[in-house]
Structure formats: C-alpha cells, structure tokens
Design a protein around this nucleic acid. Structure first.
Lengths: 246, 246
DNA sequence: AGTCCCGTTTGATCTGAGTCAAAGTTTTGT
DNA sequence: ACAAAACTTTGACTCAGATCAAACGGGACT
C-alpha cells in the first residue's frame, strides 16, 4: 500500500530543512526537526489526503508531483495548487484538510508530526516567519491564477501553465537566463484541464494549435520544448518576464 | 485630496487591535502598536495602492469597502479580493504591492508604518502567528474562488458572490442562525463582473433571472433580500452551509 | 422642471469553448 | 509479442456567455 522509500534519501534531500522552513537557520531547531521527521512515499495516482480529513502531519515534497483539488458534488473539479519538490503541505493551526491532495507521479514527502511541529513553531520564530513568507507566496500564486481562470482565453491559459511549469523547472536546475528550454509536463491533459478550468479536448486542441504555430514542439505527449520563451510569455498575455529575466 | 477622517473614530474602532492582529493579546505590544498607528481615509473610487508601488505601510480596513484587482495590458481585469471591515492589507516582508487596491466606497483604514510593524512582529510571536492564520484564511478564500471562476456557471457564480457577501455581512452583525436576510450589495454590476470573470451584461441578466425565480428580491439596484438562504446556497452549487449553520 | 451623467437593463447576434462521438497512440500487463 | 487499458487527438455540432447596440432609470446640478 505504501510505496517503497527510495534508499538514496538522506537529510541533504530534505527540502524542509534546506529550503522550505529553515533556509536561514543553522542550529538547534534543525536538530529538533530531525527527531520528529519521517519520510513517506506514495505511488502515482494515490490519494494523500481527502478534503475534510483530520491532518496529523505537515511536510513538504521531496520528489515527484502532487495536486491540490476541490470538487463539487456533481464531480466538477478544479485544481487549486500544484505541488512541486520543496513545496509545503499542511495548515499549521488547522484541524482538517481543505482540499484533496493526490500524488500524480510517484512521490516522496518529508513529514513532521503536526503537534510537535506546531510546538516548535511557537519556540522558534524563524520557522513561523518563514512559513508566513511561504504562505504569502502561495497566496500570490493563487491570485495570479484567478486572473488566468477568470479572464484568459483557452490558448492564453495553456501558455500560462506552460510558462509556470517552465519557470519552476528552471528554478530547480538553475543555469541563468534562458531563451529556449525543454522540460517534462508532469500532468495529463485531464489534469491540465482541471487546473485551467477547461475540458481535456480543448486542452488537446490548443496544445496542437501552439505546436502548429511553432510556439512549442513536442516529443511524445509530455516532453515540451519552448524555442522562444519570450514568445510563450507573450502568448500567455503576460507582459512581465515571469521570473526568467532580471 | 485626502477625505476627512470621521471624528468618531477611536481606538475601540481599530480592527487591527481588536480583531485582526491582536485578538488574543492583552498588554505591552498593544501600547507599542498605538504609538506607530495612524488613520487614513479615502473617497469612493480613489485608488489606495497601485500594483508595483513601494508600500510603506500595512493596515486594516476600519469602515467601507476596497477591492484588490489585477489587470492585463489590454485592460481585462480580475478582482482577486474583496476587503471588508477588519480585513488586513499589506505584505509584511515584501517590498512592493502585487495588486491595485481601490476604495469602492468611502473608506477608513488603520495603518502602521511598515518597518516598525515588522520589527514588532519579530519581537512578538503572537502577531506573526495571528498574521499567518489570517493569510491562511485568505489563501483558503482565494482557492475557493478558483473553483468558482474555473468551474461554475454564470448563475452559480452570482449566487456564490451573494452568499459570500451575505455571510460577511451576517458575521459583522451577528444574530445567530438565519434563514432570511437583507443586505446591501457594495458593488456595481461591473465590479461584480470583475470579481466573477463575467461581463456586466451577463451579471445583470443573471440577477434578473434570480429575481424572476424568487431566489432574491431587490429594492432599488443594491439592496438584496434573500428569502431562503438554503435555496441560495443550493443555487451556488455549494453543499456546505457556507458558515451560516452549525 | 429639465438635462446630463452614470449605472443598469434588455434585445439581437456571434463565437469560443463544451459536448458527443469516433479513431489513433502509448503504456501496461500477461 | 499481443491484447487490454489508459490517454490523446480530431471532427461535427451545440450552447452559454460575449459582443454590439439601444433604451431605461435615478440622482446631481443648473
């Protein structure tokens, strides 16, 4: 039921320690964190948390990809977040989960039992502070996505999603300013549709259109090459540089 | 240029003190807050902050209503937040503003110069903790709104907006569980459209349809009566009670 | 009282994305 | 290697909401 945990995981891989919560702290609280942390792995497609469940841990993604979704009774679903390595999961101070969390690829999470983590938050302001910063980032991302969902055309939505995945991918393997890049789309057409508020048919059509127009090229269904990032950002209706430049 | 500040404002009215940040603290830091706080008022239609501006204050709404919006170069705009009395504005630890903030009615804000506020945050964990809680609430609200924007029909969107305004209104003047209620819509049809990712014509048509079907009644254009709140929530496609019950 | 302005309503038509359906492609399992 | 399952593409048609356009109402100011 629980997928095997890769042997090569070590403390150095733990994004909680190195990126998410403790980016700036050096000492004691890290030792405490080590004592309450554990790893957990999931297989592609496996549900991690159901909306409304009591959540007894917080944590962050070590490897793989998970999605946050909300669902209506009649089955309409909207993805409200995409969790990539180093992203944080959990709501310190909250009882239940507000969304479904599903692993879309094989996934390893670094978890902390919630109560001890909250206790530590109270004692170590750095962690609370860092968590606030991360939550503000998520809020910005959610609000940026509201513009995408409310006002962009299907083609602009696809371009926006591609540029976000590209940005995240670039930041994980930094190599300076880039014009062209290749990455793997970690989502099925259906998951893309759920993220963008479209149907999977429309996603497929727009992907084909972007390919025909030379904005992207595809190897197989998932591997995407963007020959000209500025062009993609323009297609996304986004005049900002999307974090690629400056 | 700056609208006059109502004479009756007093510390007791300050939502920062009483609701937003210090709901649970009783002593010293309140005194400190008093020394760095000031009031500022705006007229209906006045812009409070432009996206990208350097923001040198944080604060919260005392009275009136403001909106957070994002705009594309071609003028398409999406409202990403509605600020009602007691809501917090600002991004501790961030330089610039990410959105436009506009007063849609005459408005009074309780402000704190940003640097001293941040210094105090470092010293008083209560405030950082409370701010994290508030930010998590905003994140939940933003993500709930993503479902509205991405997956709901025009009629469901209108019903969702009405139920949110009704809920907020009810929580400001608490009187227990209610089935029927009347409130003022603080938004023009255009602002509603910007919130919902619709055009103002569609908003108007759906308001008329909801009226014809007896879901709401209108006095003038703005005063709305909901005879049966459960019916409205059902129209919103929301099986949760929206905070009205339980 | 009149008229100007702003927000709103209503009507007619158009269109982008949804729906329904079928065929093609990749992955998985035996 | 083959068959089954899962995912993707493409086509034909439909429809919810956008667009374009005109008229309506109510307050503010002569």
């Amino acid at each position: 039921m629980n997928a095997p945990i890769p042997a090569q995981i070590s403390c150095a891989d733990c994004p909680i320690r190195h990126r998410a919560v403790c980016a700036r702290c050096e000492t004691d609280e890290l030792e405490t964190l080590e004592t309450i942390k554990y790893y957990r792995s999931y297989e592609a497609g496996q549900s991690i948390i159901w909306s409304g469940d009591v959540m007894n841990f917080v944590g962050s993604v070590v490897s793989g990809i998970a999605t946050l979704t909300q669902t209506m009774e009649d089955g309409r679903t909207q993805m409200v977040g995409l969790l990539l390595p180093s992203d944080f999961v959990g709501r310190p101070g909250r009882e239940g989960a507000a969304y479904n969390v599903v692993a879309t690829t094989d996934l390893v999470m670094c978890c902390f039992r919630k109560k001890p983590f909250e206790d530590m938050m109270v004692r170590t302001p750095h962690i609370a502070h860092r968590l606030l910063e991360m939550t503000l980032d998520e809020l910005d991302a959610a609000r940026e996505w509201m513009l995408v969902l409310g006002r962009k055309t299907a083609r602009e939505k696809i371009a926006s999603l591609l540029s976000i995945v590209a940005r995240r991918d670039a930041s994980l393997t930094p190599k300076g300013v880039v014009n062209a890049m290749t990455f793997d789309l970690p989502l099925t057409r259906e998951a893309m549709a759920d993220y963008l508020g479209l149907t999977l048919e429309t996603v497929s059509r727009q992907m084909s259109a972007l390919k025909k127009d030379g904005v992207i090229t595809l190897e197989g269904k998932r591997r995407v090459t963007v020959p000209d990032m500025a062009r993609l950002l323009e297609e996304a209706g986004d005049d900002s540089d999307g974090g690629f430049l400056g």
